[in-house]
């Protein structure tokens, strides 16, 4: 990590419009500039329609910005073609979505090994072992061969987290990872993210509506009407002891 630049994300004056050139054109991001260093744990907050998801999609290379510049892990990504963006995504990013988004036809273990399968066409013994230990680490040692349909919401989300981490990306983007869970599962999943952050130094950008969860992050970025309204460090992330994790 010492040789890699400290800066992971550098957004400069990023704008995003939908329906460009049409009467219904609407700009949802008005010149966002944001720097994220390696190892940061950021909460991205804001009311509905503030542009959080759009910003997350742009960070995740799933959507293209209309103007501005974006450097991800040292690479300038605006102007890259779809194939290059895909490879960059594969190398740099892990995703955790609100609705788990596992593939229902694959077992938990297979879901976690999918990124390796798509990168190399096969899953090596080392990668399979890594997927197993990740699943064990998120408390699913007994559920590896179960299909998503056989798992609870919290368990599915933990599978999704293991999947996001399997290629060991420097950055994980999470879109309301606990939005669909009850309070207990929600706390568990969030604690898991913090623990991974502490153990691996992975950076996180987590979109959340929940101020209590946001309070447990290191930095809070609040978006209102497509502009950054607040960007501040949070004094003391309240981290539960690892023992509190029901894994």
């Amino acid at each position: 990590m010492t040789s890699a630049p400290q800066e992971l994300i550098a957004l400069d004056a990023v704008r995003k419009s939908y329906n460009q050139g049409k009467p219904s054109e609407a700009e949802v991001l008005h010149g966002i500039s944001l720097q994220v260093r390696r190892g940061e744990f950021i909460a991205l907050m804001g009311p509905s329609g503030s542009g959080k998801s759009t910003l997350l999609n742009i960070l995740g290379l799933l959507e293209r910005m209309t103007s501005g510049s974006y450097r991800l892990d040292g690479e300038v990504v605006q102007g890259l073609d779809d194939a290059a963006l895909t490879l960059c995504r594969r190398r740099t990013l892990g995703f955790v979505f609100q609705f788990h988004h596992l593939l229902p036809a694959f077992s938990a273990l297979e879901n976690v090994t999918l990124p390796a399968l798509m990168a190399e066409g096969r899953v090596s013994a080392v990668q399979r072992e890594r997927a197993r230990s990740l699943l064990a680490a998120v408390g699913l040692a007994q559920a590896m061969d179960k299909r998503p349909g056989e798992l609870s919401g919290g368990m599915q989300q933990r599978v999704a987290i293991a999947r996001a981490l399997v290629m060991d990306p420097p950055l994980v983007l999470a879109d309301e990872p606990t939005g669909n869970l009850d309070t207990a599962s929600s706390a568990e999943v969030f604690a898991l993210l913090r623990r991974i952050h502490a153990e691996r130094g992975t950076s996180f950008v987590v979109v959340t509506h929940d101020p209590r969860l946001a309070a447990r992050c290191d930095r809070l970025v609040e978006l209102i009407d497509g502009r950054i309204a607040r960007d501040e460090a949070i004094a003391a992330g309240v981290e539960p002891a690892p023992g509190a994790l029901a894994v």
Partner: peptide, 16 residues
């Protein structure tokens, strides 16, 4: 559709 979207987000290329 949604599964295809997830696969793409996870790094599947258009070709794949």
């Amino acid at each position: 559709g949604r599964e295809i979207g997830i696969l793409r987000a996870m790094g599947a290329t258009r070709g794949q």
